[in-house]
């Protein structure tokens, strides 16, 4: 009998088990459900029903548009904030950073419910302006996810390059577009992926802020699973998985330069 030796490799065993149980098997289960009917026969019908259905296309397009809008708005707000926070002249950056992260310490559901009431109070109620209210809720919830990766990139900014640019006659605008922006590109891409995908699949924010009047991919998955239509729900999940995969692939090239996602989260 060969002796089983306890080596360092064994330490990976718990995680391997975890991966198989909670990642690999569920993934195959979703695929199995997506391409079978109630009797368990292989079929493409779910996929055809999904794409033959106006409301699914509507949901995907709206999710995509809200995802893009949220990403762009978060970047527009978060980029200057992160720049100033990371600037070497900034006093007490940690404290300022804390103020931006703090909302995340409050429970997500509570925070969303509170912003619903706040918006109602200032007159932007979800009943009349479901899309506007949802956008505000999304930006509010995802802003920290943009600031953090951008902040991490910007603390590593090489200021001598910026100085060199102006020494060599670049105007401020040129310095920004030709030097600062390219240097922070990995942070931008990282921030965008951290906002875009979760926005499309979120359902609590749209439900609470939009008074359930609009529907994102996450809402539609939830609807199907709630009603016991697992096969339809799974096909929506697979479509979303594909969208995310495409998104990851598209941003892969920019990503590899610098991994900035390991932040204070």
């Amino acid at each position: 009998m060969s002796k089983i030796k306890f080596t360092r490799k064994w330490l990976a065993l718990p995680y391997a088990l975890f991966m198989i149980l909670f990642v690999v098997i569920p993934l195959f289960l979703i695929l199995a459900y997506a391409f079978t009917d109630a009797e368990g026969n292989f079929t493409f019908n779910n996929l055809l029903t999904f794409f033959g259905n106006g409301s699914s296309i509507n949901t995907i397009l709206v999710s995509f548009i809200i995802g893009v809008a949220n990403t762009v708005i978060c970047l527009l707000i978060g980029y200057p904030v992160a720049y100033f926070l990371a600037h070497r002249d900034m006093k007490m950056p940690a404290v300022m950073m804390l103020l931006f992260i703090m909302p995340m310490w409050i429970n997500f559901v509570l925070r969303t419910a509170a912003s619903r009431d706040l918006l109602f109070w200032i007159g932007i109620n979800g009943g009349e302006y479901p899309y506007l209210a949802t956008m505000i809720g999304m930006v509010y919830n995802y802003l920290p996810f943009v600031i953090l990766p951008l902040y991490t990139t910007m603390t590593k900014l090489d200021y001598s390059q910026i100085e060199a640019a102006s020494d060599l006659g670049a105007r401020p605008r040129q310095t920004f577009t030709k030097v600062i922006l390219p240097m922070t590109a990995p942070g931008i891409v990282s921030a965008a992926t951290m906002v875009f995908m979760p926005t499309m699949s979120s359902f609590v924010i749209s439900d609470v802020m939009g008074e359930r009047k609009l529907s994102l991919i996450g809402n539609s998955i939830q609807l199907y699973f709630d009603q016991g239509l697992w096969h339809m729900g799974s096909i929506v999940a697979v479509v979303m998985l594909l969208l995310i995969a495409i998104g990851m692939f598209a941003t892969k090239n920019v990503q590899k330069e610098d991994d900035v996602r390991g932040t204070m989260l």
Partner: peptide
């Protein structure tokens, strides 16, 4: 399933496809 498809249609967004 037919009723739920109707329901999903109602719950999806009131935006004209052309605009989307």
């Amino acid at each position: 399933e037919e009723v739920l498809t109707m329901w999903a249609g109602f719950k999806s967004n009131n935006i004209a496809p052309e605009i989307l």
